[in-house]
Design a protein around this nucleic acid. Structure first.
Lengths: 162, 162, 162, 162
DNA sequence: TTTT
DNA sequence: TTTT
């Protein structure tokens, strides 16, 4: 449920390979550094390029897929929401972070499913449980089997003609 | 899962009260007629208004909420996807329909929960099944509530669009 | 200006080469056939694929770029709005069309600028005037030269820090 | 022009009246504090509400309209892009800011044009220049010059924060 | 058929 | 700091 809309849509390229972490419960947390750039003219009429680097987080099953298939340089579509966080460091200084919490991801430019091949990174650490379960960032995360790559399903029940 | 992105975002006003139907399995199908209009200048520089009427469908729990709380004239935010359908009438003529299949809905302009009050329309026909937990939009679904249910012909009435 | 929001975001692949037409005033009208598909499980648990074919129109400068650089099979990002039209044929039968009127386009998957090379299609017919002018579908469409590939500019004036 | 997509869509309520500033050139800069909140269940199954406060900036004509018509508490639709900035304070400490740069705005919930009445704040400071035609959002702009341009290396690699 |  |  929501009071309001907080939606982000990004198409960009990865500046680095994905970074993987796992919660104690074994849930994947994948962090991407994603560049979107645009060109405009400044006051003197010169071309000016500006790049925004987005910190994108993908949780659970979606994070695992991202960690397996994405690599530095790849182009990706991300849909999610903005989350602002504040931490106070040991030095007592407050630090602010802005993350994009993804709820959908699409690899672009071909190579979709098997395309470039999986990375060598292990998909999950020993001891992790089969994901899916106790998600806390990923809305939905289909309990069951398949890997929908999206956590919104417009068809809640399945007796809909398809 | 998806190969591609098909996303629609609408903010508009209802031209009529929602229309409710139910599958044999008891799933709600709510249809909205939603207006979005824009003004531009034509070649002569005159203000020209144009209104698009979107046919929006909401299924399941989301459809029930829409049917209960929305009314003619209300402003609403819809997120969903475009679906094109073709039916051949008894006269052999093909008919084309474009629907927006909603996966998120937000009532706008206050009155959200108790606001204008529920409509008098019955929320569900006799025999319908109870409809699970309370959540706008249906990211995820799964987990808690109602079980999927089979119906032999999910769309008994639906060879009559509109 | 608008009373409401009517926004579409698509990522898909072209089913065909772009079709080009030109108004009497010389403005380009480019039509794309764009596929977005999704996979779900039906009631029996089988994978079911469904593809939507969107008819996308790009006007003016944006249409010329599309006509030059896009080709059958290419993946593209489109942002625009839905427009419903009704025509009555010579047989007296009403026909309905749904178009996506693009206001932004991004070629995906590399090959952006020079990528696969321009198509052989002429960019503009003899006698056409240098485009840009008499737009009727394209909001904005910079009168003069430049090729912004987007018609929204968040920086209306240029004394903005960049 | 853009290499990538950086798009934000927000529907929320203003936490305060808009703040207006003006550049030396007289261009308006309107800053909004916009709340979007969502409710989910935490691990214990309790309802947890979380609110994000977005800092939204609107420039030029759009900023003037926002400054005149918006007020604390009003609900608004914003479309724009994310911009990350870093400033170094006089104390030598780096500070990070995330702004949403709006390119479209829609007041929601009625009261659109004359609704609540204009605020008492002056619309523009003395010396400001007049600010062009009247249109919400600013599709269009453009006019001027240059051709698309390639940048040699769009991805200067990995001097990326985070 | 809505809304401002 | 908003809203329901």
């Amino acid at each position: 449920m929501a009071r309001g809309v907080n939606k982000v849509i990004l198409v960009g390229n990865l500046g680095n390979d994905p970074e993987m972490k796992y919660t104690q419960g074994g849930m994947a947390i994948c962090t991407l550094s994603l560049a979107t750039s645009s060109v405009r003219k400044d006051k003197e009429g010169n071309q000016q390029e500006r790049t925004e680097w987005h910190r994108v987080k993908l949780f659970g099953k979606l994070g695992e897929i991202a960690g397996e298939y994405l690599k530095k340089g790849r182009q990706v579509y991300i849909e999610g929401e903005i989350r602002y966080d504040k931490f106070t460091g040991q030095d007592g200084v407050e630090k602010y972070f802005t993350d994009i919490i993804a709820n959908e991801m699409q690899m672009l430019g071909g190579g979709g499913e098997g395309g470039g091949g999986r990375s060598e990174r292990p998909a999950r650490p020993a001891g992790g449980r089969p994901s899916g379960g106790g998600d806390y960032g990923n809305r939905g995360g289909g309990g069951g089997g398949s890997a929908p790559q999206r956590s919104d399903d417009p068809f809640p029940d399945d007796d809909i003609p398809f």
